[in-house]
Protein backbone atom coordinates (compact mmCIF):
# COMPACT_ATOMS: atom_id res chain seq x y z
CA UNK A 1 0.00 0.00 0.00
CA UNK A 2 1.38 3.37 -0.97
CA UNK A 3 1.24 5.77 1.92
CA UNK A 4 0.32 9.45 1.86
CA UNK A 5 3.06 11.93 1.12
CA UNK A 6 2.79 14.93 3.45
CA UNK A 7 2.90 18.46 2.11
CA UNK A 8 5.76 20.93 2.24
CA UNK A 9 5.75 23.21 5.25
CA UNK A 10 5.81 26.38 3.14
CA UNK A 11 7.77 28.76 5.31
CA UNK A 12 9.60 32.03 4.70
CA UNK A 13 13.06 30.62 4.15
CA UNK A 14 14.86 33.91 4.81
CA UNK A 15 13.28 34.24 8.21
CA UNK A 16 13.88 30.57 8.91
CA UNK A 17 17.57 30.85 8.01
CA UNK A 18 17.97 33.87 10.24
CA UNK A 19 16.31 32.08 13.14
CA UNK A 20 18.52 29.02 12.63
CA UNK A 21 21.65 31.15 12.70
CA UNK A 22 20.63 32.96 15.87
CA UNK A 23 19.72 29.73 17.62
CA UNK A 24 23.02 28.13 16.60
CA UNK A 25 25.04 31.03 17.93
CA UNK A 26 23.26 30.93 21.28
CA UNK A 27 23.30 27.13 21.51
CA UNK A 28 26.99 26.70 20.80
CA UNK A 29 27.90 29.64 23.04
CA UNK A 30 25.78 28.50 25.99
CA UNK A 31 26.81 24.88 25.64
CA UNK A 32 30.44 25.68 24.90
CA UNK A 33 30.36 23.46 21.86
CA UNK A 34 32.17 23.73 18.54
CA UNK A 35 31.15 23.95 14.89
CA UNK A 36 29.38 27.30 14.71
CA UNK A 37 31.12 27.86 11.36
CA UNK A 38 29.69 24.61 10.02
CA UNK A 39 26.21 25.46 11.28
CA UNK A 40 26.22 28.89 9.68
CA UNK A 41 27.45 27.30 6.45
CA UNK A 42 24.35 25.08 6.16
CA UNK A 43 21.69 27.36 7.64
CA UNK A 44 20.41 28.42 4.21
CA UNK A 45 20.43 24.86 2.89
CA UNK A 46 18.36 23.69 5.85
CA UNK A 47 15.99 26.63 5.56
CA UNK A 48 15.27 25.90 1.91
CA UNK A 49 14.95 22.17 2.52
CA UNK A 50 12.54 22.44 5.44
CA UNK A 51 10.83 25.61 4.31
CA UNK A 52 10.13 24.68 0.70
CA UNK A 53 11.20 21.17 -0.26
CA UNK A 54 10.89 18.42 2.31
CA UNK A 55 7.46 16.94 2.76
CA UNK A 56 7.28 16.28 6.47
CA UNK A 57 4.63 16.43 9.16
CA UNK A 58 5.88 17.92 12.46
CA UNK A 59 2.88 16.57 14.36
CA UNK A 60 3.71 13.09 13.05
CA UNK A 61 7.50 12.94 12.89
CA UNK A 62 7.38 9.21 12.04
CA UNK A 63 4.78 9.61 9.28
CA UNK A 64 5.59 6.66 6.96
CA UNK A 65 5.33 8.79 3.83
CA UNK A 66 7.59 11.58 5.07
CA UNK A 67 10.67 12.64 3.21
CA UNK A 68 13.79 11.67 5.13
CA UNK A 69 16.62 14.04 5.91
CA UNK A 70 19.97 12.84 7.22
CA UNK A 71 22.64 15.21 8.41
CA UNK A 72 25.72 13.20 7.58
CA UNK A 73 27.98 15.98 8.86
CA UNK A 74 26.66 15.32 12.34
CA UNK A 75 28.88 17.94 13.97
CA UNK A 76 26.53 20.64 12.69
CA UNK A 77 23.69 19.08 14.68
CA UNK A 78 22.79 22.34 16.40
CA UNK A 79 21.55 23.68 13.08
CA UNK A 80 19.24 20.69 12.60
CA UNK A 81 17.87 20.93 16.13
CA UNK A 82 17.23 24.63 15.55
CA UNK A 83 15.51 23.95 12.24
CA UNK A 84 13.31 21.23 13.69
CA UNK A 85 12.33 23.45 16.60
CA UNK A 86 11.48 26.35 14.29
CA UNK A 87 9.38 23.96 12.19
CA UNK A 88 7.39 22.74 15.17
CA UNK A 89 8.97 19.33 15.83
CA UNK A 90 9.88 20.43 19.37
CA UNK A 91 9.64 23.57 21.46
CA UNK A 92 12.27 26.21 20.73
CA UNK A 93 12.78 26.49 24.50
CA UNK A 94 14.35 23.04 24.44
CA UNK A 95 17.24 24.41 22.37
CA UNK A 96 18.61 26.08 25.51
CA UNK A 97 19.54 22.62 26.79
CA UNK A 98 21.84 21.95 23.84
CA UNK A 99 25.07 20.25 24.94
CA UNK A 100 24.13 20.59 28.60
CA UNK A 101 24.75 17.73 31.00
CA UNK A 102 21.76 15.39 30.98
CA UNK A 103 20.28 16.83 27.79
CA UNK A 104 19.37 14.66 24.84
CA UNK A 105 20.41 17.42 22.43
CA UNK A 106 23.95 16.16 21.98
CA UNK A 107 26.73 18.03 20.21
CA UNK A 108 26.69 15.67 17.26
CA UNK A 109 23.19 15.08 16.03
CA UNK A 110 21.25 12.31 17.78
CA UNK A 111 17.94 10.76 16.91
CA UNK A 112 17.43 9.40 20.41
CA UNK A 113 14.27 11.00 21.67
CA UNK A 114 14.48 13.87 19.18
CA UNK A 115 11.45 13.98 16.88
CA UNK A 116 12.42 14.58 13.29
CA UNK A 117 16.01 13.33 13.46
CA UNK A 118 16.34 10.19 11.37
CA UNK A 119 19.84 9.05 12.25
CA UNK A 120 22.55 9.72 14.81
CA UNK A 121 25.72 10.75 13.06
CA UNK A 122 29.07 12.17 13.99
CA UNK A 123 31.38 9.55 12.58
CA UNK A 124 31.71 10.95 9.08
CA UNK A 125 30.96 8.92 5.99
CA UNK A 126 27.85 7.21 7.37
CA UNK A 127 24.90 9.26 6.19
CA UNK A 128 24.96 8.69 2.46
CA UNK A 129 24.95 4.88 2.70
CA UNK A 130 22.04 4.86 5.11
CA UNK A 131 20.22 7.39 2.95
CA UNK A 132 20.82 5.15 -0.07
CA UNK A 133 19.31 2.24 1.87
CA UNK A 134 16.27 4.34 2.66
CA UNK A 135 15.98 5.39 -0.98
CA UNK A 136 16.25 1.76 -2.05
CA UNK A 137 13.45 0.88 0.35
CA UNK A 138 11.28 3.62 -1.14
CA UNK A 139 12.08 2.57 -4.69
CA UNK A 140 11.45 -1.12 -4.10
CA UNK A 141 8.17 -0.61 -2.25
CA UNK A 142 6.92 2.15 -4.55
CA UNK A 143 6.63 4.66 -1.72
CA UNK A 144 6.69 8.32 -2.62
CA UNK A 145 9.26 9.69 -0.23
CA UNK A 146 12.61 11.21 -1.11
CA UNK A 147 15.74 10.93 0.98
CA UNK A 148 18.17 13.79 1.41
CA UNK A 149 21.67 13.49 2.85
CA UNK A 150 23.70 16.58 3.63
CA UNK A 151 27.44 15.96 3.52
CA UNK A 152 30.40 18.14 4.28
CA UNK A 153 33.16 18.58 1.76
CA UNK A 154 35.85 17.23 4.06
CA UNK A 155 33.64 14.24 4.70
CA UNK A 156 34.07 13.23 1.07
CA UNK A 157 37.55 12.07 2.05
CA UNK A 158 35.85 9.04 3.60
CA UNK A 159 35.88 6.10 1.20
CA UNK A 160 32.54 4.79 2.43
CA UNK A 161 30.85 7.68 0.63
CA UNK A 162 32.22 6.46 -2.66
CA UNK A 163 30.90 2.98 -1.97
CA UNK A 164 27.46 4.51 -1.50
CA UNK A 165 27.87 6.71 -4.57
CA UNK A 166 28.59 3.63 -6.68
CA UNK A 167 25.64 1.79 -5.18
CA UNK A 168 23.14 4.61 -5.67
CA UNK A 169 24.11 5.05 -9.32
CA UNK A 170 23.96 1.30 -9.97
CA UNK A 171 20.44 1.07 -8.56
CA UNK A 172 19.35 4.38 -10.16
CA UNK A 173 18.13 5.68 -6.82
CA UNK A 174 16.39 8.76 -8.17
CA UNK A 175 14.69 9.40 -4.85
CA UNK A 176 18.08 10.16 -3.35
CA UNK A 177 19.40 13.70 -3.12
CA UNK A 178 22.89 14.33 -1.78
CA UNK A 179 23.88 17.87 -0.95
CA UNK A 180 27.51 18.74 -0.36
CA UNK A 181 28.15 21.76 1.80
CA UNK A 182 31.18 22.88 -0.17
CA UNK A 183 32.67 25.64 1.95
CA UNK A 184 36.21 24.53 1.07
CA UNK A 185 37.35 24.36 4.68
CA UNK A 186 37.54 21.24 6.78
CA UNK A 187 38.35 20.81 10.41
CA UNK A 188 41.90 22.13 10.54
CA UNK A 189 42.66 23.53 7.13
CA UNK A 190 41.41 24.25 3.65
CA UNK A 191 40.14 21.28 1.66
CA UNK A 192 42.65 21.95 -1.12
CA UNK A 193 45.52 21.80 1.37
CA UNK A 194 44.21 18.67 3.06
CA UNK A 195 43.04 16.28 0.35
CA UNK A 196 42.00 17.83 -2.92
CA UNK A 197 38.46 17.04 -4.14
CA UNK A 198 38.64 18.82 -7.49
CA UNK A 199 37.60 18.17 -10.15
CA UNK A 200 34.69 17.53 -7.84
CA UNK A 201 31.77 17.90 -10.24
CA UNK A 202 33.45 15.62 -12.76
CA UNK A 203 33.95 12.95 -10.11
CA UNK A 204 30.24 12.73 -9.30
CA UNK A 205 29.36 12.81 -12.99
CA UNK A 206 31.81 10.02 -13.71
CA UNK A 207 30.12 7.96 -11.02
CA UNK A 208 26.81 8.33 -12.82
CA UNK A 209 25.06 10.99 -10.76
CA UNK A 210 23.08 13.95 -12.02
CA UNK A 211 25.16 16.86 -10.78
CA UNK A 212 23.86 20.35 -10.09
CA UNK A 213 25.98 23.14 -8.76
CA UNK A 214 24.67 26.27 -7.12
CA UNK A 215 25.26 28.98 -4.55
CA UNK A 216 24.43 27.44 -1.19
CA UNK A 217 23.17 30.76 0.11
CA UNK A 218 20.89 31.57 -2.87
CA UNK A 219 17.49 30.30 -1.82
CA UNK A 220 15.86 30.42 -5.23
CA UNK A 221 18.77 28.63 -6.87
CA UNK A 222 18.71 25.91 -4.24
CA UNK A 223 14.96 25.42 -4.42
CA UNK A 224 15.38 24.72 -8.13
CA UNK A 225 18.43 22.54 -7.66
CA UNK A 226 16.74 20.37 -5.04
CA UNK A 227 14.02 19.29 -7.51
CA UNK A 228 13.76 15.54 -8.20
CA UNK A 229 15.72 13.91 -10.98
CA UNK A 230 14.12 13.63 -14.39
CA UNK A 231 16.75 11.14 -15.51
CA UNK A 232 16.16 8.25 -13.11
CA UNK A 233 19.46 8.98 -11.47
CA UNK A 234 20.52 10.06 -7.98
CA UNK A 235 21.08 13.78 -7.75
CA UNK A 236 23.90 15.62 -6.03
CA UNK A 237 23.81 19.34 -5.44
CA UNK A 238 27.24 20.75 -4.84
CA UNK A 239 26.38 23.85 -2.89
CA UNK A 240 29.09 26.47 -2.83
CA UNK A 241 28.95 27.88 0.65
CA UNK A 242 30.85 30.10 3.02
CA UNK A 243 31.94 28.68 6.32
CA UNK A 244 30.70 31.00 9.08
CA UNK A 245 28.27 32.71 6.68
CA UNK A 246 26.55 35.72 8.21
CA UNK A 247 29.16 36.71 10.78
CA UNK A 248 31.87 38.77 9.12
CA UNK A 249 34.75 37.70 11.32
CA UNK A 250 33.82 34.03 11.06
CA UNK A 251 33.43 33.84 7.29
CA UNK A 252 36.03 31.71 5.50
CA UNK A 253 37.90 31.22 8.80
CA UNK A 254 39.06 27.74 9.72
CA UNK A 255 39.29 28.95 13.32
CA UNK A 256 35.50 28.85 13.65
CA UNK A 257 35.25 25.16 12.98
CA UNK A 258 36.08 24.54 16.63
CA UNK A 259 36.03 27.93 18.38
CA UNK A 260 33.12 28.91 20.59
CA UNK A 261 31.92 32.52 20.51
CA UNK A 262 31.92 34.00 23.98
CA UNK A 263 31.92 37.47 25.53
CA UNK A 264 32.56 40.25 23.01
CA UNK A 265 32.77 37.81 20.14
CA UNK A 266 29.35 36.47 21.00
CA UNK A 267 27.86 39.95 21.31
CA UNK A 268 29.36 41.09 18.02
CA UNK A 269 28.13 38.00 16.20
CA UNK A 270 24.66 38.40 17.70
CA UNK A 271 24.46 42.01 16.52
CA UNK A 272 25.40 41.03 12.99
CA UNK A 273 22.93 38.18 12.78
CA UNK A 274 20.08 40.19 14.30
CA UNK A 275 20.68 42.97 11.81
CA UNK A 276 20.06 40.67 8.86
CA UNK A 277 16.74 40.90 7.12
Amino acid sequence: MVVDHPSCLGKDTRQLAKAIRLHCLRMTSTGGSSHIGSCLSIADILAVLYGRCLRVEPSQPKHPGRDRFILSKGHAGAAVYATLAECGFMPTAKLATHYQDGSDLSGHVSHKGIPGVELSTGSLGHGLGVAAGMALAAQQSGQPHRVVALLSDGECDEGSNWEAILFAAHHRLDRLLAIVDYNKIQSLDEVDKTIRLEPFTAKWEAFGWEVRRCDGHDHEAMAAAFAPSRERRPVVVIADTIKGKGVSFMEHQVLWHYRTARGEEFSAALLELEAQS
Binding site: G129, A138, S160, E163, A164
Partner: peptide, 22 residues
Protein backbone atom coordinates in the same frame (compact mmCIF):
# COMPACT_ATOMS: atom_id res chain seq x y z
CA UNK B 1 20.52 -6.71 -3.34
CA UNK B 2 24.13 -6.94 -4.38
CA UNK B 3 26.19 -4.24 -2.69
CA UNK B 4 29.53 -5.15 -4.22
CA UNK B 5 32.81 -5.43 -2.33
CA UNK B 6 31.92 -2.64 0.03
CA UNK B 7 31.34 -3.81 3.57
CA UNK B 8 30.90 -0.37 5.07
CA UNK B 9 28.15 0.35 2.59
CA UNK B 10 26.68 -3.11 3.12
CA UNK B 11 25.90 -2.17 6.71
CA UNK B 12 24.93 1.38 5.79
CA UNK B 13 22.42 0.28 3.16
CA UNK B 14 21.06 -2.31 5.57
CA UNK B 15 20.65 0.32 8.26
CA UNK B 16 18.70 2.51 5.84
CA UNK B 17 16.46 -0.41 4.86
CA UNK B 18 15.96 -1.33 8.51
CA UNK B 19 15.03 2.21 9.43
CA UNK B 20 12.35 2.05 6.76
CA UNK B 21 10.81 -1.08 8.27
CA UNK B 22 12.59 -3.87 6.44
Amino acid sequence: FQVGMAEQNLIGIAAGLARTGW
